[in-house]
Design a protein around this nucleic acid. Structure first.
Lengths: 348, 348
DNA sequence: ATCTTAAATGTGAACGTTCACATTAATTAA
DNA sequence: TTAATTAATGTGAACGTTCACATTTAAGAT
C-alpha cells in the first residue's frame, strides 16, 4: 500500500540522465533538448514524481509560504479575509499557513510568530485589530520577516491596510441624525479592538458635533448573544432611545430580538444600524441599514502590498485606507412622534 | 535593518561547542551537562536563534504540517472546522496549511493536492461534502499521505468523520409531523453536496413513511439570498404548505423574509426549520427550531483520527458518525386551523 | 576538415538539520 | 592505581534540492 516517494535522482536514473537535467525539466529551463525533455516528462508522469518543496525551500532560503494570523474568527470579517488571502496567495504560487490566536497576549503571539519564523514563511498578514502588543514588539518578534497588518490603529506608521472606521461611524451616525434622531444609544464592540474603539469614539464625537448628548453605551463581544444582553441592559438602565448604533451586524440581530421582547418595533419605535454588511443582513427582519466593509478589497490589497514588501524591502511603509460605504435598508426611519414610548420591564 | 538568520553552527561557535551539542540543547536531549546547557541557551536567547524547521523536515522526512482542504467557506460549518482543526493541530505541535477549492473539479483538486504533497504535509483533512471526485481518485492523488474526510457520503468504506444527516433530517421532519403538519415543502442545499442529498432524500422518505406526500422542493445554494428566492418560488408554484424544512439556517433567514413579504407569519401560518444551529439562529425572528451539528466535536475527532492514521498506517478504516440534535425554539408550532391561507401573488 | 561558438548535459558543493557512530571526559568499582 | 563504565561531546554522512561551474556534444564559420 505504502508507496515510495521518488526524488530527482530516481527520475534521472529511470530516464538515463543526470539529476540536474531533471531539475531543468521540472523548472522549465530552456536549455534542454525537446527529446530529452519529453523522455524525462514521461518518467515523471509514470512515477508520479512530486518535487520536494521542502528541499527546495532549504536551498532557496524562501518557502513560498505566507502566513495569516487571526485573533478570533467569530465574526464575518476575518473569515472573509482568510478566504481571500488564500485565493490571492494560491494564484501567485504561495501556500497559506493559518494561525489563529485565542488570547491576544504577548506570549501567545510570540509563540505563534516563533513557529512561523522557524517555518521560514516569506511574509505574514496579521489581522491584528486587537490591543495587546505594539507594532514595535511585533516587529521585534518578526525578526526579518515582512509583515502587513490588517486593521490596526489608524494613523500609525505601520505597513497596513485599514478600513476607515471613523468615517464609517460618522456616516452611519449622521444618517440617524439627519433622519431626526436625537436620543441615540450604542452597543459597541469589545473595546480592546482598534476598530471598536474607533467606531465608539467617532460616535461620541459625531454626537457632540451635532450638539447632541450621547446616551448610554454598552460593550458587547461581537456575538448576537452579547447584542441581546447589551440591548436588555440599555432598555433597563437608559431607555428612551429612538436609535441604536451597534458595532456589527451579528450583535444587531440579538439587539433587535431584545427590542421585540419589549414590544418595541424596528424601525417603528427604534431605528437600528449595524456594521459589516454580512450577506445575511439584507434578510434580517427588518433588512438592516449598515456600513459595508469590502473585505475582498482589503484582502487583495493586503496580499499585494505584502508581496511587494517581500520582494523589495524598501517598499515605503504606508497605510492603505479603504472607505466603507453606507447601505440604507429598512431598519432605520425618522423617529415617530410619540418619541417617549412607555418604558417596560424586561421579562427576565 | 535586515537581520541575519542564525544557524546551529553560529550558536555553536558563539558558545564554543559543536553544533550537535546545540542541537541536543534545542531538542532537550538529556545527555548535556547543566553548565553547557545554560551557556548554549543564553547564546540562543541573545542571538534570537530559531531552529529551521525546513531543514528539520528534510531530514526527518515529515513536516509537522497538516492541511485542511475546504470546498467553499460560505457557510458556518467549514469555518468552524478550520478553526477547530487549527487549534487541535497547534496543540499537538502541527501547523496548518489552509487550502480552499473554488470549483470542485478533478483538476483543481489534483492541483491542490499536488502542492500539498510537494510540501510534505503529514496528513490531510478534507471537508469534502461535494460530489465531483471519488474516494479512489482522491486516494490515488494523495499518493501515500493519510487523509481523513469530513462529511463525505454516509456508508462508504472511507476514513472519515461524518454527521448522520439522515438522522437529522428524520428528527426534524418528524418534529413537524408530530406537531400535526401534513403539507410540508423543502428548500434543500445544493444537490451536489452529500449532506444536502442525504437530508433531501430522508425528508422524502420520512414523509412517505408517515403516509404524507411531500410538497415541492427547491434547491438553494446555502445563502440567505437563495433561501429567499427559493421561498418565493415555492410560494408561487406550490403554495399552501404549512411547514418548510430548509437545508441550513442561513437560507432560513431568507425564506422567513420572503414569507413575511407575503404577509405570512412564522410560525403562525408557516412553521420553519433549519439545519446547523449557527449561534445567530437563537436570535432570529422568531428564534429558529433547527438541528444542531457539533462542529467542535467533528473537528476534534477528525484531527485525532487523522493523527492516529499518520502514526499508525494500519489504523482501521472507519466512519466515525456523530448524531445531530434537535433544538426546538419558536419557529415551529401546530398548524393553525384555517390551514389553507389565502394564496397571494409575489410582489414584483 | 578544422576552429569557434553555442547548446546540452553533468559534477561538486551547499542549504541547516538529524542520525549513527566515534571520541573524549568524568565517574565508579575493584 | 587502574580498568571498566557511564556521561558528555564531537564528527561524518545524509535528506532532496539549486547554484555555479565544468564538461561534452552539436552546429556554424572559415
Amino acid at each position: 500500500m505504502k508507496r515510495q516517494r521518488y526524488t530527482l535522482n530516481d527520475v534521472a536514473e529511470y530516464a538515463g540522465v543526470s539529476y540536474q537535467t531533471v531539475s531543468r525539466v521540472v523548472n522549465n529551463h530552456p536549455s534542454v533538448s525537446p527529446k530529452t525533455r519529453a523522455r524525462v516528462q514521461k518518467v515523471i508522469r509514470e512515477l508520479g514524481y512530486h518535487p520536494n518543496k521542502v528541499a527546495k525551500s532549504l536551498v532557496a532560503n524562501q518557502s513560498n509560504t505566507l502566513a495569516i494570523m487571526t485573533f478570533g474568527m467569530n465574526h464575518y470579517g476575518p473569515t472573509q479575509m482568510v478566504l481571500n488571502t488564500e485565493r490571492a496567495a494560491k494564484n501567485l504560487g504561495y501556500d497559506l499557513i493559518f494561525s489563529n490566536i485565542n488570547e491576544p497576549t504577548y506570549d501567545q503571539i510570540r509563540k505563534a510568530l516563533s513557529s512561523l519564523i522557524g517555518r521560514q514563511v516569506d511574509g505574514i498578514l496579521a489581522i491584528s485589530p486587537v490591543v495587546g502588543i505594539t507594532y514595535e514588539e511585533m516587529l521585534e518578534l518578526c525578526w526579518d520577516i515582512p509583515i502587513v497588518q490588517i486593521d490596526p490603529q489608524l494613523g500609525l506608521e505601520v505597513p497596513s491596510v485599514i478600513v476607515d472606521q471613523k468615517y464609517g461611524s460618522r456616516i452611519i451616525t449622521e444618517h440617524l441624525i439627519n433622519l431626526g434622531h436625537q436620543k441615540i444609544a450604542e452597543i459597541s464592540g469589545p473595546l480592546n479592538w482598534f476598530g471598536a474603539i474607533a467606531r465608539h469614539e467617532q460616535w461620541l464625537e459625531t454626537m457632540h458635533e451635532a450638539g447632541l448628548t450621547p446616551m448610554m453605551s454598552v460593550e458587547g463581544d461581537w456575538s448576537a448573544n452579547s447584542g441581546y444582553e447589551a440591548a436588555r441592559k440599555l432598555l433597563m438602565e437608559d431607555p428612551g432611545f429612538t436609535a441604536l448604533v451597534v458595532g456589527n451586524d451579528q450583535m444587531t440581530l440579538g439587539a433587535i430580538y431584545a427590542l421585540y421582547q419589549h414590544n418595541l418595533s424596528v424601525p417603528g419605535d427604534v431605528s437600528v444600524v449595524g456594521f459589516d454588511d454580512i450577506p445575511e443582513s439584507a434578510f434580517f427582519s427588518p433588512p438592516l441599514t449598515t456600513v459595508k466593509q469590502d473585505f475582498n478589497q482589503l484582502g487583495e490589497i493586503g496580499v499585494k502590498y505584502l508581496l511587494e514588501r517581500i520582494h523589495n524591502p524598501d517598499t515605503p511603509i504606508e497605510q492603505h485606507v479603504i472607505l466603507p460605504k453606507l447601505i440604507v435598508r429598512q431598519s432605520t426611519k425618522t423617529p415617530s412622534l410619540h418619541e417617549q414610548y412607555p418604558v417596560q420591564k424586561a421579562n427576565s
